[in-house]
Amino acid sequence: MNATKRFLRSRPYAFALVVFVVLLVANIVAQPSFASPSNWPETLAIFAPFGIAALASTPAIMSGGGGIDISIGPLMTVIDMIIVADLLPHGLGSPWIVVPFCLIAGAAVGAVNGTLVTVLRFQPVVATLCMNFILTGLATQIEGASTPQGSTWWTNDLASSFGPVPGGLISIAAPLLIWLALSRTAYLRNLYATGGDDAAAFSAGVDVTRVRILGYAIGGLFAGVGGLALMAVLREGEAGDATMYTLVALAAVALGGTAFTGKRGSLIGTLLGAGCMYLITNVLSAARVPDTWTDAIYGLLLLVAVIFGAGLASATQARTT
């Protein structure tokens, strides 16, 4: 029992991992075909945009100081729409154009958010809410009178699979690989330190401002990947989708054990959290629970996660003082 507790405390994502495994089993029991490999590409492709939205929301929160980015959903939608409405119709559908565009545009918007928050000292919620409105408005502009549609060979593969590899897996792996690469630099350590105690980091000479701006920019970069994954699976751009992911992505972050104070957190936890939320919708629909109930159950699950997470955190603190 004590060993279990220690394991749970030292790994903030442990709770999400346990829930994830339980839900996975529940899904397979409720719907045996869920486990069949032929269904994986589709499942992963549908999950990818949501999972990536959650991943993209994490770095800003981990940078501490009340950091949060609620413009991730609209950013993904705008990127989706620009690909469908502007790039594809003009023959710019090559991955060598689309992918760099997504990454650069995403990171740039994230960097603007980070600058608003750190240099101009806007409240993170206010700054990114403004960005949320701006991007949603932009999406409506691009949409115009009719919903633009489009796709090309490689985005179709991204929504199914590249040979044996599911496309959704590639989309989700991209942010994780970027994160892994960052863990080989000093950046992640600086990010964790800044989120953990910004005064200590600042006095030790960490450039807290730069670390935070980069946190938002990396979130934006991930959102760029997410926009692409969204476009691949939807094959259209609808401005109404813009706000869809914002709050559920944050719920996934919380469920994954990342504290909104920035004091602890992990990307893998967020992915597990997002996985839990996806699986729960899935198991509810497999069990023929009406759609109208899923939101209420989301909320309840989040509440449990927050209480449980807070309990773990305070237990850890009690040990240290």
Binding site: R189, Y192, A193, G196, D197, A199, A200, A201, S203, A204, K263, R264, T320
Partner: peptide, 12 residues
């Protein structure tokens, strides 16, 4: 005392 509680002694 300016240390980051959540990080390891070495990182601090």
């Amino acid at each position: 005392v300016l240390v980051v509680d959540s990080r390891s002694v070495l990182d601090n």
